[in-house]
Design a protein around this nucleic acid. Sequence first.
DNA 1: TTGATATTTTGGAATGATTCTAAATATTAC
DNA 2: GTAATATTTAGAATCATTCCAAAATATCAA
Lengths: 141, 141
Amino acid sequence: MNLSPEHKALLDNALIDSGLRSTRQREQVYGVIMSKQDHPTADEIYARAKASMPTISLATVYNCLETLVDCGLVRQVNFDREPSRYCPNLKEHAHFYCKETGEVFDIDLSGQAIHELRRQLPEGFEMESFELSYHGKTHSN
Amino acid sequence: MNLSPEHKALLDNALIDSGLRSTRQREQVYGVIMSKQDHPTADEIYARAKASMPTISLATVYNCLETLVDCGLVRQVNFDREPSRYCPNLKEHAHFYCKETGEVFDIDLSGQAIHELRRQLPEGFEMESFELSYHGKTHSN
DNA sequence: TTGATATTTTGGAATGATTCTAAATATTAC
DNA sequence: GTAATATTTAGAATCATTCCAAAATATCAA
Ligand SMILES: [Mn+2]
Ligand SMILES: [Mn+2]
Ligand SMILES: [Zn+2]
Ligand SMILES: [Zn+2]
């Protein structure tokens, strides 16, 4: 019950580029992730997706998530060994995990910070991606 | 079959400080981790430990690892959802994961880089730790 | 359209790292 | 020593995720 025309087009193009088909389930899962700016687990995405598509299966949610991640439309985010979370924010950014509430926050990174991160790699290390996560508590105020 | 007197003292003090007992198995697991500068999984640590202590169990390895991590003597390192790895390097550092070989490398971080990382956090986020991991390939030469 | 073909979805079984359990051992305190 | 406490151990349980094979669906050519 969502997915803007822009996102629909993004999805279809990405799928076509990968030689994959556009399906109701893929739209639904992508829509669920895009419609809320948070970091849900597969289970949470399954629950939200079922609300307007009661027949979708958990296996399909996992399949769609893998597809979306592989197409670069969604980011997979892991904290320690907890269940994976999925992030709609494609900008290069970090995550803050609050150990009190379990909430996850996006943290923007300055160009300078990203540059500095790259600079740490010695000769011979070809970085393709990095993951930066902060753990701590948030002052609720 | 290892563990320098310095490490033995470190271990005993840390255990005492936590109200825990010094045992052969804890020494063995700590010795295994300290005796090689790499990032073994629990299974690998189990295999190495068994070489000189054939009766040690995998459950005990897991128990010892948790104890050592909680005492701050060893770092637990995770890449995506792969089995946890354990790191003897207590300095604040990052990890480079080579997607070709699966090897893990320690990456030193400059004070400037660490400062820059801290600087990214907005008001209200109290960082207790951070994890930075790079993914890519290494030029073998 | 129609049917052939390739892809996707689905429910349920399998996987595998880790954790749990409860009995056997080891360590510490008295 | 003996009792009290902590630790180890083997095996069972957990649980997120992956695998499987059958049913449903999408695509394409005629
Ligand atoms: Mn994947
Ligand atoms: Mn732990
Ligand atoms: Zn995010
Ligand atoms: Zn390390």
